[in-house]
Design a protein around this nucleic acid. Structure first.
Lengths: 346, 346
DNA sequence: AAATAAAATGATATCGGTTACATTTTAGTT
DNA sequence: AACTAAAATGTAACCGATATCATTTTATTT
């Protein structure tokens, strides 16, 4: 590959002039500039940006830690990141970490070693916290699932309010026996959504029943499995609120296999509004999150930090939307029959 | 950030010794090595890998051009790439190109400018072809949808045979009126799968009907739309073979909305075997592709090329598998009734 | 103890750009 | 024509590591 010296030789000027002709053309006479451009063309010269980055100390790369790229919601987030990064001329280094702390720490080292300028974390874990830092904190933005006391800008959604809104919706349909298929127990996301669920129950004067909370891991399979468990209860719930759409779709299948009709026999709600949610049978009632916007905002915030356009620590809260589709409906009047005398219904 | 000179100063040795103590410890005396390691620790030294990369001329980055990261199949491919790249200590630079030639060419420049060592292309387009190359070809691997005459290693699947296998399956169930929802017309993938479909029809002596081919774009929506069109035909098909699972799931929804039962009234088949395929209603008969393996293989091939472990141009063909689920079934005997006299059925 | 080989360490060029500073050329003024 | 300011260009240091080659130190042999 030809370098700047080669071009300088061809154009019969100094390397500094070549550099200037390309970077600040106004500093170079038209005649020289043309000579240089001709030489660039002749040599097929492409500046070695690795050298530029090294010299400038800026890699113009951002590391993104994604728990699972194969998750549809995160795929949308990444899509938004891509868009914003490209616009601002940064590249994304993708880290598929399977939510493994050590894998994330390994990726965080890319920032420490100047291979990336900053990091976007989509999980409530601070990979820099454990790196023995003699210097100040490295640039980071935390999005989607955020740390309670994040030492960095944050992009999130009011998960508690969203879960409350969904639960209120189910309550308004007459449901009183509402199960929830959660995510991993330690996750703040799970905690907040359970809290919102509880808020709604409390406000409606419905007793909270811990045993209605079923653990899942955000996959179709886990939604199916958890639902199967719920159906073994002597009094089965009249509605299942899943913490994401994948689990809700898993739940739908399980219910179908048990011969239950949704929403006639049981209502199902999801969270995220992935594309498949509108195409399930029945289409899924869910909470829509602006996934791409999460990505765009996170990238823009991080670059703002890097370019010093930001001093304080912003906390961006994106809006959610309750999307009503066919998977939720009024509770069946005969429902409590299993363990309630029919006389109550009169 | 502290650098190697700082460490050398602290350890009271030369920078060369520091470098050696870290890279080839066996060349340095134990005493000196310990002094250096202590200094490294004291200074919180992390080698600037941007400098290392610059010096070595190798970025250890790979560009991946993905038509749509939000596509479930590609998400799995990326997942596999990640895994392989991490193992071999490379990073992935992700380019979400929306199948736009110019966007891909822009990303290809990352390789030209030494920011990445090679490129993986998941589409039948050669972004290097248009770059005026004075030098030899830049390292590239083409996977999933491949160029007919790819000037590089290739990872693919026998799409023609796979489509033929699925069509044969449908034929064996008695279907003679089989529609196909295709991908974009220009794609070799589409061409090969249509060819395989036709192979099977020909072998069975069933006439090929061009009007049964319906264009789609691999999204849920397009599957839905195309199906709606097919249902307007005076003689509606008894089976629909979709070129990917998303479109098949879109088709399922459309059929449901029209009050048609799958597979009793009409059979539906997909391609890819994404996770949702097993959870649709009914579960989707499809062609399983080893998506993660595509990613892993592509990355390993590219790195082999980069590390000169490869001279010839390999063409890896991964296996597919026909996965039979509930969305395909025998053709209804009364089906041809719409435009065939009942007398034929006796 | 001297000679020699082997091991350890140091000085420095190098990668390919950018940029501060020095120098030369051109344009403008009297 | 002489002088000055401005514009254009050149020289060389620099970014942080690696690696070659030279030099010094240590170990081994006689």
């Amino acid at each position: 590959m030809s370098n700047i010296r080669e071009v300088a030789r061809l154009a019969e000027v100094s390397v500094a002039t070549v550099s200037r002709a390309l970077q600040q053309p106004e500093l170079v006479s038209v005649k020289t500039r043309n000579k240089v451009l001709a030489a660039v063309k002749q040599a097929g010269y492409q500046p070695n940006l690795l050298a530029v980055k090294f010299r400038s100390g800026k890699s113009h790369n951002l590391v993104v830690l994604v728990p699972t790229v194969a998750n549809v919601f995160f795929a949308r987030v990444i899509s938004g990141m891509q868009e914003a990064a490209q616009q601002r001329r940064y590249s994304l280094l993708l880290g598929n970490t399977m939510a493994d702390d050590n894998a994330e720490i390994a990726y965080a080292r890319l920032v420490q070693t100047s291979q990336a300028d900053g990091l976007i974390q989509l999980r409530a874990f601070d990979p820099f916290a454990t790196l023995d830092m003699t210097t100040e904190r490295l640039p980071m933005v935390n999005a989607c699932e955020v740390l309670d006391k994040a030492p960095c800008p944050v992009v999130t959604l009011d998960n508690r309010a969203a879960a409350m809104a969904m639960t209120e919706h189910l309550l308004s349909l007459g449901h009183r026996n509402i199960a929830m298929i959660k995510g991993p127990a330690r996750s703040p996301l799970t905690r907040d959504r359970v809290a919102g669920y509880r808020d709604a129950l409390d406000a409606a004067g419905v007793a909270f029943d811990e045993t209605l909370l079923c653990p899942g891991n955000f996959t179709l399979q886990s939604g199916h499995q958890a639902t199967a468990q719920l159906l073994q209860r002597k009094q089965r719930p009249t509605a299942i609120f899943c913490e994401n759409d994948e689990m809700a779709i898993g739940a739908l299948q399980c219910l179908k296999q048990h011969g239950l009709k949704v929403p006639e026999d049981i209502s199902v709600a999801g969270f995220d509004d992935i594309s498949f949610a509108a195409f399930s049978d029945p289409p899924l009632t869910t909470i829509a999150q602006p996934a791409e916007e999460f990505g765009r905002t996170a990238v823009n915030l991080l670059i703002d930090v890097l370019e010093q356009k930001l001093t304080l620590l912003p906390k961006v809260i994106l809006p959610f939307e309750l999307v009503l589709r066919g998977s939720t409906g009024p509770v069946k009047m005969s429902e409590p029959a299993t363990d309630t005398p029919a006389v109550h219904l009169t």
